[in-house]
């Protein structure tokens, strides 16, 4: 782009990578050290026999924790805090769970089809009590396909920022500002992909992931509504307030 210099793109890429590493919740090395710790069969059964509402609450707590790190990530992206408050909220409300799903591939073991959850690596069967097998399968499939792209931390950081800064979210007040920021992030991502000598089609593959992420999040909302219809008091009194703000 004639309006953004290479130096600016390098700077943007560096800031976003740093922000990602400072807020990624677990370092890759930490996760690698824990990778041999899978839940034993009796532990799996104990999750499966939890009441549905207890498992929902546990997952809501874990999601909320992960989202708090995403909020910190957003705050450190150059330009995010210059957006108006309405737009900061809109972007986080729509995109924070999407970033959690993107980040999940760092905590995912493709060989065993397990994800780091509540202290150990868990397969899809651990989440049976939620009563959302189809959504869980889709989330695991998404993590597996993200893993197959073998993104480096800086690529993952820039893709997360690109997802968060989506300029097509409803209710943005200063759409043009967000568009500019997203465009700059996309150029920085492109720049890093070139620098890392990644294959030509990777950016397109990543663009395809955006629609998969939207579908996962809308299905999460549907499942939550169905759950809330049966357990309105549980959501109202036992779910983390931030979770309710974002998805309520």
């Amino acid at each position: 782009s004639p309006t953004v210099s290479m130096a600016e793109l390098d700077h943007q890429a560096q800031i976003i990578s740093k922000s990602h590493l400072e807020t990624c919740q677990y370092l890759r090395e930490e996760l690698q050290q824990m990778s041999w710790q899978n839940f034993l069969q009796d532990e799996v059964e104990s999750y499966q026999s939890k009441p549905r509402e207890v498992m929902w609450q546990l997952c809501a707590v874990k999601i909320t924790e992960a989202i708090q790190y995403v909020v910190e990530f957003a705050k450190r992206i150059d330009g995010f805090m210059d957006l108006c408050q309405n737009d900061q909220i809109v972007l986080l409300k729509a995109g924070s769970l999407e970033v959690v799903f993107v980040r999940m591939c760092r905590m995912f073991d493709s060989q065993n089809n397990t994800v780091y959850f509540d202290g150990k690596f868990a397969g899809p069967d651990v989440f049976k009590a939620l009563g959302c097998d189809d959504l869980i399968t889709s989330v695991f499939d998404f993590a597996k396909s993200m893993c197959s792209l073998h993104l480096s931390e800086d690529e993952l950081a820039l893709f997360s920022a690109f997802v968060l800064l989506s300029a097509d979210r409803s209710w943005l007040q200063e759409k043009l500002q967000v568009e500019k920021l997203q465009q700059k992030t996309q150029l920085a991502l492109q720049h890093v992909l070139q620098k890392n000598q990644r294959e030509d089609g990777l950016l397109n593959k990543l663009r395809c992931k955006v629609s998969a992420l939207r579908s996962l999040c809308s299905r999460h909302t549907e499942k939550l509504s169905a759950f809330r219809a049966v357990y309105p008091d549980i959501v109202g009194t036992h779910f983390p307030p931030l979770y309710k703000e974002l998805f309520g």
Partner: peptide
């Protein structure tokens, strides 16, 4: 604003 009180608060807290 009241609807997103916690998010506002998290955004306003300085980064540590």
């Amino acid at each position: 604003k009241e609807k997103h009180k916690i998010l506002h608060q998290l955004l306003q807290n300085s980064t540590s």
